[in-house]
Design a protein around this nucleic acid. Sequence first.
DNA 1: CTGCAGGCCGGCG
DNA 2: CGCCGGCCTGCA
Length: 289
Amino acid sequence: MHKVIYSSKDTVIENITDFDLGSTLECGQCFRWDKNDDNDYTGIVSGRAARVIQQEGRLVFKNTTPDEVNSFWYQYFDLGTDYGRIKEILSKDDPIMTDAVLFAPGIRILRQPLFETLVSFIVSANNSIPNIKRVISALSRMWGEEFRYDGKTYFAFPGAKALAEGEICDLQLTKAGYRCDYIKRTAGMFFENPLTANDLKAMDYHEAKELLRRFPGVGAKVADCTILFSGSHFRAFPVDVWIKKVMEQLYLKEETPLQKISDKAYDLFGNMAGYAQQYLFHYARMNRI
DNA sequence: CTGCAGGCCGGCG
DNA sequence: CGCCGGCCTGCA
């Protein structure tokens, strides 16, 4: 069980296992965390920010109350889930996965706000990570609420209304290119019919995916990323070029179309396919497959 | 200068 | 229907 300690404005969670802050924040599931000079990270989620540092089994939230850690960040980092058990189940009778989990034993799937995740992955399509971060930062600076934390100013990710009504396509301020139109239209639809991760959870996985795909700029991969990285369904298995290569090379042994890779992933990993995707993705990048 | 980055859309066969 | 070329932008 985790022990939460509060001292001199910091909140510390002790006895954390199967968790690595760096690989969790740098595996490409989130775009608003930056590494500082020290080993700490500063991140913005919705309208709040945190500076976090990991010291082995301790996770320190700088200038943050235990109340905020308990009510928000604990869930966000998915600290209530037993990843040791997940890795054990995935590794059983699977030598490939046994190897893969060792490359990123502390990775976790964040539970991120739905609208922010949806827009972020629309931006991610055919884009590079530095560019994605720039665009999201610009959207927030232009149309997000300003707030302060730890003596600095930050900008919340904008709400659907702000993006739907903002002149986000006319000016070249966000550098989102042709994705501007997708963002604006998606924001408009989202504002008309708001949706939460809990709504998606209440549906069947396929139903949730189909629903998300109705938003412009959302195809199979973006829909799966949104479902997985908002913590809605953990069988979502986003297939990008890396995952395609690693699945073909290690499991399927032949060229396979994208949709079929998704199906095979469910056959192999079932409701834990999403976790498997994270380990395999990390493995592929580390080994430059 | 060309190619490409964690895809999606639309038009064509 | 499934396939495939084009695409904002920044960077190597």
